[in-house]
């Protein structure tokens, strides 16, 4: 009896230990975001400096809790918020657009038979598997030709037509039993009707998963804006955060927290779909 209780506990403790190691960076960021700028500079100001023998002072508990960083970031410097909305204004159209485009295409790939279906889908699949370094080249060429460079469209449009959504939703579509569709066809429902009233409700979890996965993917993007958007004012927070350390070290923890918060909250509120999405797609994250 005791044995059956001790082993899970030990296992749990080990797993908790590992989990806390994994969470350490996140916790550190959150905790430090409540320090004053002065504390931050005192503890971490020597980062990247070679002319000092001081070490950083890893602080787990602030001397006192302060919202100074947040005040600085959210109230005193509007630019941060602008960049935040830059991110939002790229991610949201991509998600909505890709979901819409993908629902249609995924239904076609998943539930309709037409010549060349497998071959075409293979193209989507291979493209999806390509690292972004490969897809970036065609994206760039086309954005250049369309005159979209340095315009958010150069990121949004390739995002909307990225093959991942088609692939993920097709996986969900495949799970819809064909008998439903056959029955609807018997009743004389058109394809669009079937899609809207039968397939769509059944792939709702898939759409939720797609939204979360896409959000994670594009909220995080660094490379595309880095290359496509020369204009710093147009870039999303992610790019901006990459060179934050030097000049605004004092507030960078708060910036990081505000930046990661939407994603973390979205993840927590839709964790089920997120995991389901990963399991079903086995691709991307």
């Amino acid at each position: 009896m005791i044995k059956g209780w001790v082993a899970p506990l030990l296992r749990s403790l080990l797993l908790i230990l590992i989990a806390s190691l994994l969470l350490m960076p996140v916790v550190l960021t959150v905790v430090n975001s409540f320090m004053t700028e002065r504390d931050i500079m005192a503890n971490y100001g020597m980062l990247g400096k070679t002319d000092t023998s001081l070490f950083v002072n890893l602080k787990w508990i602030p001397d006192w809790v302060s919202f100074q960083q947040y005040g600085e970031v959210l109230i005193s410097t509007p630019k941060f918020l602008y960049l935040f909305w830059n991110s939002v204004s790229m991610v949201v159209p991509i998600i909505i657009g890709q979901a819409l485009v993908a629902i249609l295409a995924a239904f076609a790939f998943g539930k309709l038979s037409f010549p060349g279906r497998e071959g075409l889908f293979f193209l989507y699949l291979m493209t999806m598997l390509m690292p972004f370094q490969v897809t970036l080249v065609p994206n760039y060429l086309m954005a250049d030709r369309l005159g979209l460079l340095n315009h958010p469209g150069s990121i949004i449009l390739p995002g909307v037509f990225a093959p991942f959504g088609v692939f993920l939703l097709r996986q969900f579509m495949l799970h819809i039993h064909s008998s439903y569709i056959e029955a609807a066809k018997m009743d004389g429902a058109g394809t669009l009707r079937i899609l809207v009233s039968i397939a769509l409700p059944m792939v709702k979890p898939g759409i939720a998963a797609l939204v979360v996965l896409l959000f994670v993917d594009y909220w995080n993007m660094v490379e595309q804006p880095l290359i496509f958007l020369q204009d710093a004012a147009k870039q999303p927070l992610s790019v901006f955060l990459s060179h934050i350390q030097d000049d605004v070290l004092g507030v960078s923890f708060a910036v990081s927290v505000v930046y990661m918060m939407p994603m973390v909250l979205l993840f927590l509120s839709a964790e089920r779909y997120f995991i389901e999405g990963i399991q079903l797609s086995g691709v991307k994250g």
């Binding site: 996140v26 992610s238 990459s242 990081s256």
Partner: peptide
Amino acid sequence: VVPVASIVL
């Protein structure tokens, strides 16, 4: 899901 950029620091 934590953005890389957030954790770089």
